[in-house]
Write a protein that binds this DNA or RNA. Structure first.
Length: 586
RNA sequence: GCACCCGUAGUGAAAUGGAUAUCACAACGGUCUUCGAAACCGUUAUUCCAGGUUCGAAUCCUGGCAGGUGCACCA
């Protein structure tokens, strides 16, 4: 429809002797101003040497020579805006279209035949997931869904940083403090022979991630004592030398970490096609550095460290290998990027990572280009705004100012279940509570612009009224039960506009959904979806309040039901692009 | 010092360069014997400052001010 009107405008302008170099056609903010609006008359008035309103009238006269059935009327308003009002039939047809497409309504093909490899989440396996991970995971889940809806083949990836000093601290914490009888053991050989004397998370009565979290903190604290720190460093060295006993211990603690993270990630809707484990590629990076050195991409400093040469790329330099010859994050990222690219043959590679990594990301991309791993334009860092805890300032795991994700979800769930207890079947409480808790938290984060800093307020995130996930879910579920009640009448809808029907604002919004999906994809903006869903729900709830939908006496009732079902379909599809599932009842 | 991000009602947020800046929370006042009140209807209140570009600026540019982040051998 949009293209159609644009063509009409372009032809009209050409006929008037104006060469249009671009036409702005948009949905006016006010529905009363029509369905599409253009400012072309304002923009081209000067070129036409006339005033905007006069030009607008000429354009309208020109367009009116053709009969377009979808356009009911064209009006001129304000300083010279031309407003297009679409016909009742157009809206009814769009409702029919939604009902026909169901789950696929809203899909576009703007990224057809493109492969996007997206890295997100990547929590370190020595800690339980906390609020600091939240925005990353939710943004990633949503963007993957949005890109898929726009036709891309999406590969979801995570990097598991499973080696190094932090993991060694966790191993040490487990060794010295997880023994069932509470005694302290530092001899790893003894552990290997008497594994069953150590607690499992179940035996300790803890969730595995929290078990790990506690042991890591214990290990980190122990390292304040130089003697212990030496022992921990020794673990790293022995691990790198593939000492079988150390590897056994390493695998043991990691298995607990993975078990915990897997659960939390699943609760947030995060799925992965590939997990890259650091231990499998961390040594590869140095080869790239050596190649780069011989090609003159890098230079060696007097102290032995190897430095980038990025001045020509407009970036500050960074060390790629330390003076002692050991690797840095960027060293292995070179190898990893190369591996990812070769594996997926991706047209676009995306890193969803916090904004503080911005410079490091640009450096990585630039170096990859210098080494011929890929072009800078194929790589994209997608950052997001900071999140602070309201009233407490920045989150810090060091100061113990940590809020665990599972606790937040559980708290929301408890509150929701209390509310639903009398209303729905007991067997559904758990799963519905989980869905709604997730929706409250996910929507609370995703409705904000991606780069907007958020002050996370726990009580605000657990809210159930207003601009919230549960509000959207409630609207959708309520629509569902109306449709259920009128399932006989809905069959009477014949796809035509009922007599005496006045087009509703709800219809004027429903058909825009695919445009919103397209914009969310182009701008990598989940918030575009979120904002649309709030507006759509408000329109449905107002419609619901004003109209009786199921009414045997009312000849428009079948269409109202069809409209309600179209709303429900659009909401479900929209929510799923935010990673949010809709329950049947709540 | 340099670079990047941000600044919108009391609070949290929205707004592809468009018309009277939108939504929610909070506050105040209404609406359940009738399809689900987690809802609806109404009232009050907002673009950091100064220039500039433009027919038109919360949005773009310049300069301030305030906040955040990063800047080579940490992860």
């Amino acid at each position: 429809m949009k293209e159609k009107i644009e063509t009409l405008l372009r032809d009209a302008l050409t006929n008037l002797g104006i060469t249009p170099d671009g036409i702005v056609l948009e949905h006016p903010a006010e529905l009363a101003h029509g369905d599409y609006s253009t400012s072309a008359a304002l923009a081209y008035a000067k070129a036409a040497q006339t005033n905007p309103r006069a030009l607008a009238e000429k354009i309208v006269a020109e367009i009116s020579k053709n009969v377009v059935p979808e356009i009911e009327s064209i009006t001129i308003a304000g300083p010279g805006f031309i407003n297009f009002h679409l016909s009742k039939k157009f809206f009814t047809d769009s409702v029919v279209d939604i009902l026909a497409h169901k789950e696929s309504y809203g899909k576009t093909n703007q990224f057809q035949n493109q492969v996007w490899a997206i890295e997100y989440a990547s929590p370190n396996p020595n800690k339980a997931m906390h609020l600091g991970h939240l925005r990353n995971v939710l943004t990633g889940v949503s963007l993957c869904a949005i890109l898929e809806a726009n036709g891309a083949k999406v590969i979801r990836e995570m990097v598991d940083n499973n080696r190094g000093i932090a993991i060694a601290k966790l191993m040490w914490g487990y060794l010295v403090s997880a023994k069932k009888d509470g005694t302290r053991v530092t001899d790893i050989a003894y552990w290997a022979e008497h594994e069953s004397e150590w607690n499992t998370p179940e035996e300790a009565g803890m969730r595995p991630d929290r078990f790990v979290d506690e042991l890591y903190v214990k290990g980190a604290t122990e390292c304040e004592n130089p003697e212990n720190e030496t022992a921990v460093r020794d673990l790293v060295v022995r691990w790198e030398n593939k000492d079988a006993t150390v590897w056994k211990l390493w695998e043991k603690v990691l298995s607990y970490a993975y078990a915990g993270q897997k659960k939390t990630l699943a609760r947030l809707g995060a799925k992965f096609d590939f997990v890259w484990h650091e231990h499998e590629h961390y040594e590869e990076g140095k080869k790239f550095v050596e190649t780069g050195l011989s090609q003159g991409v890098f230079k060696k400093l007097e102290d032995g460290a190897i430095l980038s040469d990025l001045e020509s790329m407009g970036l500050t330099d960074t060390v790629v290998v330390k003076k002692d010859g050991t690797a840095l994050y960027i060293t292995q990222d070179l190898a990893l990027t190369d591996m990812k690219k070769k594996k997926h043959n991706a047209s676009k590679m995306i890193w969803i990572i916090g904004p503080e990594q911005s410079l490091a990301m640009q450096q990585l991309f630039a170096i990859c280009e210098q080494l011929g791993i890929g072009k800078r334009a194929e790589f994209l860092h997608v950052p997001y705004g900071y999140m602070s805890i309201k009233g407490e300032g920045k989150m810090s795991s060091r100061t113990g100012n940590v809020i665990y994700l599972d606790d937040v979800i559980d708290e929301a769930k408890e509150k929701i279940i209390a509310l639903m207890r009398d209303r729905i079947d007991a067997s559904m409480l758990e799963s519905t509570g989980e869905m709604l808790a997730h929706s409250a938290i996910a929507f609370g984060i995703l409705k904000a612009g991606r780069m907007t800093d958020i002050a996370f307020d726990l009580s605000d995130a657990l809210r159930l009224e207003g601009d919230t996930g549960p509000y959207l879910e409630y609207s959708t579920v309520r629509a569902g039960s109306v449709v259920e009640k009128g399932k006989k009448e809905i069959a009477d809808f014949d796809g035509t506009v009922p007599d005496g029907w006045q087009t509703t604002d709800l219809e004027k919004y429903l058909y825009r959904f695919p445009e919103i999906v397209s914009r969310a994809g182009a701008e990598l903006a989940p918030s575009a979806i979120a904002t649309y869903l709030i507006e759509l729900s408000a329109l449905f709830n107002a419609f619901y309040g004003k109209e009786q939908i199921v009414n045997a006496e009312d000849s428009t009732s079948p269409y109202k039901l069809a409209l309600t079902e179209a709303f429900r379909t659009t909401m479900k599809n929209g929510l799923s692009l935010l990673g949010i599932e809709t329950p049947e009842k709540m």
